[in-house]
C-alpha cells in the first residue's frame, strides 16, 4: 500500500450527530483560505462513499444512532474516524441528557480524538497529522 498517496489525498466526510454547530463551523474554518487544508490534499466530499475519513461531531442523539452506523458501513475501507469536539468524546455539557446514546466510540470504532469546545482549527489539523501517524504505525504492523 502506497501510504504517501493515501495520506496526501484524504477526502473527508462531515457527519453531524446532533452537534450545536460550533465544531462544524471550526471544521469549515479549516477549509478557508486562512488554514487551507486543501494544500495537504484534504478535500470535503458530499458522500460517505467517496470518503477516507469521517469527521464526526456531536453527542449521538438517539435518532442518529442508526444513521451513524450506516454511514460508517457505507464508507469504503480503508477508513479512519475522527471525533471532533468534547461532545463526541464524552458528552460534555449534554452528558446527562436522556436522549443521548453516545459517546461516539460506543457506536463505531474511533481512531483520533480531537478535544475542545470547540477545538481550534490548528487542533483539527493536528488531529489529521495524528491520523497519518496512526496509519503509518498500522502499515508497519501490517494490519492494513
Amino acid at each position: 500500500m502506497n501510504l504517501k498517496a493515501f495520506n496526501r489525498a484524504l477526502w473527508v466526510y462531515h457527519l453531524n450527530t446532533g452537534s450545536c454547530n460550533g465544531c462544524d463551523i471550526e471544521i469549515l474554518a479549516v477549509l478557508t483560505p486562512r488554514y487551507d487544508v486543501e494544500r495537504f490534499g484534504i478535500m470535503l466530499v458530499g458522500s460517505p462513499r467517496h470518503a477516507d475519513v469521517l469527521l464526526v461531531t456531536g453527542p449521538v442523539a438517539r435518532s442518529m444512532e442508526d444513521s451513524v452506523r450506516r454511514v460508517y458501513a457505507q464508507t469504503p475501507d480503508p477508513k479512519l474516524v475522527m471525533v471532533i469536539g468534547n461532545c463526541g468524546i464524552e458528552g460534555d455539557v449534554f452528558h446527562e441528557a436522556y436522549s443521548l446514546v453516545g459517546p461516539i466510540d460506543q457506536i463505531i470504532p474511533v481512531d483520533v480524538y480531537v478535544p475542545g469546545c470547540p477545538p481550534r482549527p490548528e487542533a483539527i489539523i493536528h488531529g489529521v497529522v495524528m491520523a497519518w501517524a496512526k496509519l503509518e504505525r498500522l502499515v508497519k504492523k501490517e494490519v492494513v
Binding site: 502506497n2 498517496a5 493515501f6 489525498a9 483560505p33 487551507d36 486543501e38 494544500r39 495537504f40 490534499g41
Partner: peptide, 16 residues
C-alpha cells in the same frame, strides 16, 4: 488567496 494542493494532487487522488 489559498496555497492550494500540489500540481501532482490528481495523480495522488487517483492512486488513492
Amino acid at each position: 488567496g489559498r496555497v492550494g494542493p500540489p500540481i501532482a494532487q490528481p495523480f495522488r487522488d487517483v492512486q488513492k
